[in-house]
Design a binder for these strands. Structure first.
Lengths: 144, 144
DNA sequence: GGTGAAAACTAGTCGGC
DNA sequence: GCCGACTAGTTTTCACC
């Protein structure tokens, strides 16, 4: 059950990352396999935890969520970590949170509709610590 | 052809973000519609550009790409932007690049296998400008 | 581990409401 | 704008190599 991942598996994964709607048969033609062989490998990748799930790439701008920002968080004290995690779990506008070493304690990716909403988020964050905001004014590259 | 997006469309989108492999029929049961009505709405969302494509969520750790970092880039001079864009376009380990206001010129999300590879990336970046690295040591939240 | 053929399910298209 | 029936394509499961 502990199988290795060969180059073909990686190729299949890369194809699926680019477009998960491709059929197994179509992928099979590209990697010189039949559709059901590709299906078996995809299932293996899922069982191994390499593939965690399937999602859609969506455009936040078209839904009035055009504001993207990176917020570096500096917590006031060490006992604020639990409160911070509860805070981010309850907010839909916080898309991604990383515990980081370097600048600050956490770095989170935020997605809101207006600057007012971003301001409200930052204000709610203040009791926990300080922050530094980098507002995205253009995406050069995204999820290669 | 210029249609509005109602609450049902958003619900369908949220379901697809969580799991794009759900069938239209299954989604229809959740939003009280038939499968083909869901399919029509999904097609509408694609035509409107809200849904840009389908991808897989994959686990970099399982492929020996466990190092995640955020690099804030401070370009040396204004004429380095073109060179920087060419630089990031050619590197697979740079996953995401944002033009930002605030700290630095660009903020990019990097994904490498080892610290040596990260060091090599940063060294290659040096001719273009300075940088500040925040190494991710744990993901609290990811792509809600 | 991969291939081949049959079964179950799915999405897309048609007319009708 | 949505529903029901039909068709085409897909994934899945089986035995076999």
């Amino acid at each position: 059950m502990n199988e290795m991942i060969d180059a073909t598996d990686v190729r299949i994964l890369q194809i699926l990352i680019r477009d998960a709607k491709r059929s197994n048969k179509e992928i099979g033609e590209e990697v010189h396999l039949t559709g059901q062989a590709v299906g078996a490998r995809v299932r293996k990748l899922q069982d191994l935890g390499v593939i965690e799930g399937y999602t859609v790439k969506w455009n936040p701008d078209r839904l009035g969520l055009g504001l993207k920002a990176f917020v570096t968080v500096f917590l006031n004290s060490g006992d604020k970590h639990a409160a911070f995690r509860a805070f981010v779990a309850g907010r839909e506008d916080i898309v991604e949170v990383h515990r980081v070493s370097g600048e600050g304690c956490y770095l989170m990716r935020v997605q809101t509709g207006t600057t007012e909403q971003l301001g409200e988020l930052l204000e709610a964050l203040l009791p926990l610590g300080n922050y530094r905001v980098s507002l995205s004014i253009g995406v050069e590259k995204s999820s290669s």
